[in-house]
């Protein structure tokens, strides 16, 4: 392996460390919410600084690598790594938002059984894991298949908003809790968006094809 390849490998490795940290933050934030575990929620908030630092590390490594004038796939890998790390950092931010709301929600009795929220988190995490798996294995088709799954999460988010609105209309004392749950739901929906962004970057990395912002039925798969 050349020195440049070693540096690229170390960039990838740092990115995967970051991905596993972001994944764990989301999983723990949902556990903190469902189990009403304030200590866990606070730990997740505190750990977020690790993701922030990793994002800066990746940017530093990427800038140094870019100054060496990489071309073709190496060039795409470095720019994609910067974008993926930014998305992972945001995933971490969403996990801290969930935890902050969990800390408020645990002050009052639970409004409703949490069914949809863990389901959304689960789907978002699966999308994130598949996107990273596609990044590691170089599987652009797997990455491409992630994009439509974002719609499922969007649908649950909308449905949950309607449901929570009806709680608020019926009983104003539920407003604080319902609003907190709306924020949680929105955060989970954003996590799925970040997973989608990462999947799109993975397709660009391996196929040099930009599939962002395409209309319905145009996920670019016919060109691959």
């Amino acid at each position: 392996m050349t020195h440049f390849e070693q540096d690229l490998a170390s960039l990838k490795e740092t990115l995967l460390t970051m991905a596993s940290r972001a994944d764990s933050s989301v999983a723990r934030s949902i556990r903190a919410l469902v189990d009403r575990d304030d200590d866990l929620a606070r730990a997740v908030i505190e750990d977020d600084s690790i993701l922030d630092e990793l994002e800066k590390d990746i940017d530093g490594m990427a800038i140094t690598l870019l100054s060496k004038a990489p071309l073709a796939k190496d060039l795409r890998l470095i720019t994609v790594a910067m974008k993926i790390s930014q998305n992972l950092e945001r995933v971490g931010d969403e996990a801290t938002t969930v935890c902050r709301r969990a800390l408020e929600l645990s002050q009052e009795p639970q409004l409703k059984p949490y069914v949809d929220i863990p389901r959304m988190a689960q789907t978002g995490l699966e999308m994130l894991r598949d996107a990273l798996d596609a990044f590691v294995t170089g599987d652009a088709e797997k990455a491409r298949a992630i994009v439509p799954r974002d719609k499922d999460v969007d649908a649950i988010n909308k449905q949950l908003h309607r449901e929570l609105a009806s709680y608020m209309i019926e009983k104003p004392t539920t407003i604080t809790r319902a609003l907190n749950l709306m924020v949680v739901s929105k955060s989970l929906e954003r996590i799925a968006d970040h997973a989608t962004n990462i999947a799109e970057e993975v397709v660009y990395l391996f196929k040099a094809q930009d599939i962002r912002h395409l209309g319905k039925g145009q996920n670019g798969s016919s060109n691959s």
Partner: peptide, 14 residues
């Protein structure tokens, strides 16, 4: 808790 060792702040090219 920060369990992993972080590299130095990379923005200032140390």
């Amino acid at each position: 808790m920060a369990a992993i060792t972080l590299k130095t702040n990379s923005t200032s090219t140390p």
